[in-house]
Amino acid sequence: MNIFRLVGDLSHLLAILLLLWKIWKTRSCAGVSGKSQIMFGLVYITRYLDLFTNFISIYNTTMKAIFIAVAIATIYLIYFKFKATYDSNHDTFRMEFLIVPVGGLAFLVNHDFTALEILWTFSIYLESVAILPQLFMISKTGEAETITSHYLFALGSYRALYIVNWVYRYYFEGFFDLIAIVAGCVQTILYCDFFYLYVTKVMHGKKLSLPA
């Protein structure tokens, strides 16, 4: 474990708790893409299947359990409890356009042709594009609530910090995983224009609004 990965994990935890809190407090999931949340739920479930079989550390097990629980709770709030506030007219990104190619790629490009490894690879690839419906929804509505932009900033920062973690681990531990690194770079690149808007607008107290 290194500081970059620890801060990254905490940023990730902050992001998902922030979103859950926003929906719970405002009792509304307006501006939140349920499709992205479903895909994040899929990401955690397919990646953390070894939750009960492969113990690494208390920290690892606890965080995996929290991520899965919060993802399920968020999906529940969006599609059941506060379903009336779910903005399905703007959450129109076709998930199958992401899940099918990602599933195919996981079969073709992986470290090991075993069920667990292919599911882990699928999870890594899916996570890199899972935010697209959310970014697409913001581009359609032209704006995002400030708390939602904080959520996106924390979520985008987590994988950017993981990239620094991978550089660190390459130089100090001689460790690298090309699949995770390439997918992590794609994921972080997808946030770039949002990061720009966040820094230039939200940091100056303005609402995040895309140029119409």
Partner: peptide, 10 residues
């Protein structure tokens, strides 16, 4: 292969 201990990452 180095990817062995990716699995210690979240």
């Amino acid at each position: 292969k180095y990817s062995e201990d990716t699995k210690d990452e979240l």
